[in-house]
Amino acid sequence: MWSNIKNMFTAKSSASAAKGRLHLVLAHDRSGLEGGRLQAMREEIAAVIAKYVAIDAEAVEIQIETRSRAAQLTLSTPIQPRNA
């Protein structure tokens, strides 16, 4: 009973935690990209972007998401303002 009441007030149920974790892990499973290779790809892409605009290579984020059964690769990075 008490845990029920506590659950009502805590932000996330364990089911939604499971769902979130599954979405992530399946995105990686489906793409066949293991963590290490994904990070290697992130660094390579970051280096290419850095040739064109000023970015902080450490701030580049890479993410695989699934929608339905299709996986989508998203890369995002803040661009540093021009100093001149």
Binding site: N4, N7, S13, K19, H23, S68
Partner: peptide
């Protein structure tokens, strides 16, 4: 358990597996 939020519902499973 589903009602309590401690088990994925069938709708969740369908959505995840498509």
């Amino acid at each position: 358990l589903v009602k309590k939020g401690d088990m994925l519902s069938q709708a969740d499973v369908i959505e995840i597996l498509a």
